[in-house]
Every structure is written in structure tokens, then in C-alpha cells.
């Protein structure tokens, strides 16, 4: 399967072949300036089969999911959903992403959610800084302290009993997909 076919077979990437390279996605993107490959360019790279360059890139990790590109795309390519699909593929094949720590916050979020049933922000943030750079935490400590003092950063997670049924479902789903 070619790379463009792989992307088109991934949920969120279905419409990639409809792209006419008009560039309205890049023009609408608030973070295009931060990206090595802004949306229009990354679509061109995918269609050129440059799998490694695309999946190891930090570009789609700068997507804020503001959906301005998806709203404006005249061909219904849904570039925001495409960015999710690319991150998902990069995660599945364990690409190491350089140039942004965004993947670490995503992993911290999901692990907090699975452990507690609901996201525990303080736990998520602590795990994020421990796995990236604990020194950076000092910089935003004043923000965290204000949130803590105003009851917006509970120390203990709210562990819902739903977390157990959630974990069972996820395990079963992985078995089902593994057997297909």
C-alpha cells in the first residue's frame, strides 16, 4: 500500500486525494508559521510518498484543532482531521518527534484519563514535566499556585468507578482489532 493510500485508509485522512493544493488551509492556520510543513505542503509530501519525513515531523503536532482549515477547504479534505490521523499513525509506529513536546502532553492526558476514568490535571501536568523538562515547571509554578489557591487544581484525582469498565472495554477493543 502506498503512503497516500495508507493515509486515506486512516480515519480522518479519507479525503486527502481531493486536495487541489489551493493553500487556503495554510492561509487559515494560526500556527502555520511554526510548522516546517504547513498543511498544504504536508499534503503534497504525503502524495509524494515521503512517509518518514511526514510521520517524524513536528508539524501536525502544532495543530490546535481550531478547524478553520476544515471549515474553509473547498474540497472537504478536512485538514484538521488529517492532522489527527497523521499524529495517530506517527504514534502507532512509534516515531520520535523532535522540535516539540506536544506528544508528551498528549500521552500524559490519556494516561491520566485511563488511570482515573477522568483527567486529573495536576497529575497530568506533573507527569508531563517529569517526562520532559522538570526545570520548565518552575517557570509556570506561579500560574499553578494561583489555580491551586483558587480550588482549580485539586491535589487528588477524582477516581470514578467507571475507570474499571473503561479499561475492560479498551482491552476488549484491542483484542477485536488485533484479530481483524
Amino acid at each position: 500500500m502506498s503512503f497516500v493510500e495508507e493515509v486515506a485508509a486512516t480515519h480522518g485522512g479519507e479525503n486527502i486525494c481531493a486536495c487541489i493544493q489551493c493553500g487556503i488551509c495554510t492561509g487559515s492556520c494560526p500556527t502555520a508559521g511554526e510548522m516546517e510543513y504547513p498543511p498544504r505542503k504536508i499534503i503534497a509530501l504525503i502524495r509524494a510518498g515521503m512517509r518518514g519525513e511526514v510521520l517524524s515531523s513536528s508539524s501536525m503536532w502544532h495543530c490546535l484543532s481550531c478547524y478553520m482549515c476544515t471549515l474553509r477547504c473547498p474540497r472537504d479534505v478536512r485538514p484538521a482531521e488529517l492532522a489527527h490521523a497523521l499524529k495517530s499513525l506517527a504514534s502507532r509506529y512509534n516515531y520520535r518527534i523532535k522540535g516539540t513536546r506536544a506528544p508528551a502532553i498528549y500521552h500524559s492526558f490519556v494516561s491520566s484519563m485511563i488511570n482515573n476514568g477522568r483527567v486529573h490535571e495536576l497529575g497530568m501536568i506533573l507527569r508531563y514535566y517529569l517526562t520532559t523538562n522538570p526545570l520548565v515547571a518552575l517557570k509556570i509554578f506561579p500560574v499553578g499556585l494561583k489555580l491551586l489557591l483558587r480550588r482549580r487544581m485539586p491535589l487528588r484525582p477524582h477516581k470514578t468507578s467507571g475507570r474499571r469498565s473503561l479499561a475492560r472495554m479498551v482491552k476488549k477493543f484491542r483484542e477485536i482489532r488485533g484479530s481483524h
Partner: peptide, 11 residues
């Protein structure tokens, strides 16, 4: 949220 969908889009 978007986070889960960016690590495993179907799960």
C-alpha cells in the same frame, strides 16, 4: 478529547 484521537483515532 482531541488528545486520545491523536494517539489512536479509533479507540
Amino acid at each position: 478529547s482531541v488528545q486520545y484521537g491523536s494517539l489512536d483515532e479509533l479507540e
